[in-house]
Amino acid sequence: MKEFPVRRRRSRHPAGPGATRADVVHAVDGLSLTARHGEITALLGPNGAGKTTTLECAQGLQQPSRGTVRLLGQDPWRASPALRARVGVMLQDGGLPQAVRPLELLRHVASLYRSPRDMDELVERLGISGFDRTVVRRLSGGQRQRVALAAALAGNPEVLFLDEPSAGMDPQSRNIVFDLVQQLRREGVCIILTTHLLDDAQRLADQVYIVDHGRVMAQGSVAELVAPGADAPAVLVLTLAPEQLGAGPFPWDGPGFEDVRTTRADRTVTLTGALTPPLLETVTRWFTATGTLPESLSLQPRTLEDVFLDISGREIR
C-alpha cells in the first residue's frame, strides 16, 4: 500500500494585525494524520479548527514552523514541478481569476501538464458547459466550485486536496461532484478533503479526523466513530406523553445521569453520553412508577454529528 502521510507539529499564525511575537496563536499544534491512496480522508471540524492551515502545509502553501510534512514522500514546501504535477488542489476560495471564461482558464491550466485530462469531457460531466463562456465573476458560488474542481483535476492527480468542496453547491451539483470524487477514489486517487458538513464526511469519507483547536480530537472510519462502546454509547430518544409533562422529577435529572447530556425540545428528550443498561432500567422504572408509557422510545446509534458535537461542544464559534 502506498501511503501519503501528512504529519504536522506546529504552524504559526499571527494573532492578527499588530500581533507581536509574544501573542502568536498556533492554528495547528501537534496534529498528525496520514492519508492513503484509494481512500477519502476527511478533516472535519468547526470554523477556525485548523483544517485549512493543515491542508496548506500539506500543499506547500505554508511552511510549518515545526514538524514534518511528507507529500508522496517529499517536502511540499520545496515541491518540484514534477511533484506538483502529481497533486491537484482545490482551494477554499477557488483561486480563480475573475475576468476569465471557465473553458479558457481550464485549457490554460491543462496546458501546464504533459498529458492533461480531457477537459471537454470533464466540463461536460461537471455541468460546466452551460456557463463555460461566462466570466468567472458572474458565476454563482457552486458554479465556481465546479470550475475549481475541474482545474484541480486537469493533470490527472494522484493526490487531490479539496478544501470545503461542497460549499455553495446545490444538491444536484453536490451529487455530480460526489460521484466524481467517489470514482476517483476507485481509481486509486488519494483524496483529502476538509468540511464542516457532517453529511459530506458521512457520505464520502473512509477515514475521518475530527479536528478542533488545531488538534485531532478523534479519528477513525465513520463506522468506528459512531460505534457504541464504553465512551461512545448510543443515543436514547423518547417522546413524552402530554400528561407526563408535569410528572417530574424525571429520572435523567436525578442521580446516575451526571455523565449523560440531556437535551429537551418540547416533549422530545434526547439523552447522549455514557448510557448504560442500569440507566436505561432507571428510565423504564420511572414509567412503571408513574403507570404511563411514553409516546415513543428508541435507542439509536450515534450519528457523526453526535460524535462531532460531543467533541467540539455545542456552542457556536
Binding site: 502553501l61 514541478p81 514534477a82 488542489v89 482551494l91 501538464y113 482545474a151 493533470g155
Partner: peptide, 8 residues
C-alpha cells in the same frame, strides 16, 4: 496560491 500549486 492556486497557480503555485500547479507545475507552473
Amino acid at each position: 496560491r492556486f497557480l503555485s500549486t500547479t507545475p507552473l
